[in-house]
Design a binder for these strands. Structure first.
Lengths: 209, 209
DNA sequence: AGGATGACGATACAAGTGCAATGTGACAAG
DNA sequence: CTTGTCACATTGCACTTGTATCGTCATCCT
């Protein structure tokens, strides 16, 4: 048997290159040869690790979702109560720093891609469903807010996704997006009197940039 | 001088074909020849009316935004007070029927496209800015809700955009999306006691499908 | 030591891409 | 009736795309 190589590591390397291409030049420019060039390898190697282009796409999507989940679990604020948990999750999805801007671009690109590839759409749907259930669960466990948990969960998730789009498009600033998210979080978690309430003392101003 | 034709009409015809292709097969499948085939014309004619592919893209984007705005102005509920105006606008952006599903697919595709084409991004940004200002204005004129008008406006707009993505992805149903939107509209327009409030008598259940 | 085996690299190929150049024909002004 | 002009059609070209095929070379097991 020949050289000992970890295939998963190789694939991840290539997936990273793909994500970089997708974020900077758009998904339309993602091709075998571009990814290979970005990764600094030959096109033949890419072909060796992904039998088809769609395989490569799906794997790259898995990489990002796994990465987001990993970052969430590594977040220290996870143990500060349900609202902090939800906030930590949602902020992960907001393009507040350069890394997340790239990931955000990738995410929206994949949402467009999913419209014509059922495989990708299913994968995306699973991820979303998990998050939604988790958020609704946390909201339910934290007494009642101004909305019923199910609607509050879809509302928050949709809000964040829309905010991400608007931030990436330059329609609003990242600060404004985080502030808007916080305002909606207060409503979802039962602080009914919102107007005039300065800010949450637990999370002074979040990590803006 | 030869045959008398309305160039704008021709271009709109071609733009419609492009939108159909983009909605059904994705933006990656939009090509000169595909659009021509969808429109039932030759590729040479497409080239005659659009010097470059990017011209065609931008024009198609203009067509959709103009169409959305026209539909909004034609909405009879526009004269039922600020909240009805905002609701009418936002529902236009939600994929509640087949036509709007297609438009929604187009919209998300263009958002992805805008990430790499500054021209498209600018055009998109202008449209969004207009809507945002209009919503904030209406909220301000309608007494105060639970959020400050600026945040409420970006919140509603982002919420709808996110909801559209989720509906298109099959993550939530159109009904659930409209219900969520209505719940958030109540908060933005100052009906603070939300939970337990059955529904708005003015707008019984909206036009679901 | 030797061969099997897997990790690559190179090349080929059909199909599709955007775009330019050139043709063709009709129709209206003179 | 001629003629210029505009609306389209055709063709061609250089290039990129995804995928299949074959070659090569290092490596590990026996």
């Amino acid at each position: 048997m020949p050289k000992q190589v970890d295939p998963h590591e190789r694939r991840t390397l290539l997936a990273d290159a793909l994500l970089r291409v997708a974020a900077t030049r758009g998904l339309m420019d993602v091709s075998l040869r571009h990814v290979a060039a970005e990764a600094g390898v030959t096109a033949g190697m890419v072909q060796h690790y992904f039998r088809t282009k769609d395989d490569m796409m799906v794997f790259a999507l898995d990489v990002v979702s796994a990465r987001v989940q990993a970052r969430l679990e590594a977040d220290p604020t996870t143990h500060d109560g349900p609202r902090a948990v939800v906030r930590a999750l949602l902020v992960q999805l907001l393009p507040v720093d350069d890394d997340r801007v790239l990931e955000g671009r990738v995410a929206i690109a994949f949402h467009a891609y999913a419209a014509s590839r059922p495989t990708v759409a299913t994968r995306l749907r699973e991820d979303t469903r998990g998050m939604r259930a988790m958020i609704a669960e946390q909201i339910r466990s934290a007494g009642r807010g101004a909305l019923e948990p199910e609607q509050a969960a879809t509302g928050l998730l949709s809000l964040v996704e829309g905010l991400a789009v608007h931030v990436l498009g330059g329609h609003v600033t990242a600060d404004h997006a985080v502030a808007t998210l916080d305002a909606h979080l207060r409503m979802a978690f039962g602080h009914v009197s919102v107007l005039g309430r300065p800010d949450d003392p637990e999370h002074p101003r979040a990590e803006h940039r």
